[in-house]
Design a binder for these strands. Sequence first.
RNA 1: GGCCUGAUGGCGGAGUGGUGACGCAACGGACUGCAAAUCCGUGAACCCGGGUUCGAUUCCCGGUCAGGCCUCCA
Length: 475
Amino acid sequence: MSLKLYDTMTRAKREFVPADPDRVTMYVCGPTVYNYAHIGNFRPVVVFDLLFRVLRRLYGEGHVLYAANVTDVDDKINRKAADEGVPISVVTDRYLEAYNADAAALGALPPTFQPRATQTMDAIIAMIGDLVRNNAAYAAEGHVLFATEAFADYGKLSGKPLDDLIAGARVDVAPYKKDPRDFVLWKPSKPGEPVWESPWGPGRPGWHIECTAMIAQSLGLPIDIHGGGVDLVFPHHENELAQGVCSGHGRDYAHYWLHNGFLNMADEKMSKSLGNVALAHDLLKSWPGEVLRWALLSGHYRQGLDWTDSLLDQAKSALDRLYRVLDDSARFLAGAPAPDGAQSPAGAAEHAEVERALHDDLNTPAAFAALFQLADKLRAAVMARDARAVASSRGLLLDAANLMGFLTADPQAWFQSGADDDLKARVEDLIAARQAARAAKDWPEADRIRAELAALNVEVMDGPNGATWRVKEQA
RNA sequence: GGCCUGAUGGCGGAGUGGUGACGCAACGGACUGCAAAUCCGUGAACCCGGGUUCGAUUCCCGGUCAGGCCUCCA
């Protein structure tokens, strides 16, 4: 029953205890919306969506508040907007919409809040003011900088020795910085860039302060869980923590820091600066969202994940198997008398195992294993023609899989996705003709029709109650 | 250079101080007019070298290799 999560701060798996079980809070750093997001951007989306679902089950749907922000003011956005000759909101609105559509296709529930930097400007400016008042920040040449020396624990989250941070700094230090580690809270805008008024002059916020302010505004500090990719541990989360604490919100900023591992393309880290991107937007044209979700969750979230075609094929095959039992059990139930009386508890242990695995720091591979055991249980019940056991274990499989965001499609639709109405009608006609040929034991004709269907990328499967079909390969 | 992860069968990937998950793929058999699915079954792994132990893939040390962070990338 108890949920254990690996906390980056303490580098240990800890039992999760929310500050207030009636108001569990989680924040995850979201995208900068200047382009379509690649599949690597969606790893944290899917991972923390799963955690969101697990938390909702544990504490109740209304008791978990999840904020995932959007950075909608940024150099890359500015450049894109300038290239297109449009206001930045045109760019950000367009890609935010695409991002949310992709996330939904991957089975991610909408977060409770989706704060945007441009809509948090007052809180950002107020928080910078707090930092300046607390002597944790100073203005210099139109900039406002965070004074890292004000935060004694700076470097604790990422485990970096402070001296090394200075010695290892490879970037030229801006002359107005008192300390090389100091980072920007507010900076002047260049001509033509979006600009906001502030007590330190017109300009725009630094990246780190946006998140801290958005958390404070949407959830209130401190929060229970802060998530994001490992690459954000330093400097982004280190800086967030420093800002949150020094702005006067107390020592606790986030009680649990969770970080997902990186997704690699062809043995190289995927990033937009390299050419090896796979946009979720494009992948979704060829694969059902659940396949991508399954692939993203096929390894433990803290591990690195190599994104390959083979990974997707395996994910598809695994899901096919689950959908097959679902389909077969539905057909059995449709033809069987309704089960009477209490349902036998077939599969209860396996069902519990799914949650147990998830509660162990989101051990999705173990949860998948339990899902397959549940599927085996269901298969056995179908073979035994035990309607009560089928109904019971089918419900449990569906519940466990749904909790993880899987098996949300109708099995029939799953196997026939990619077929339009026109194709469906043709297939049905061909199958009817083939059934007639089979009834007449005209095997050559039956096989000829099967070949014709195969040419349409359709596979027929003869069953005791007629034939079923499915699309063989995704487009 | 500093800090941090990881190294498991053909592939993906959990886990465990002692009888080696799970999935994908492969192979044999059953079923099927054929096929698919399904069922039964088979083969197949714990990077290297030390150490601790009755016993290590699992703990400790060293090495090698791979990846990440140290630069406003999830």
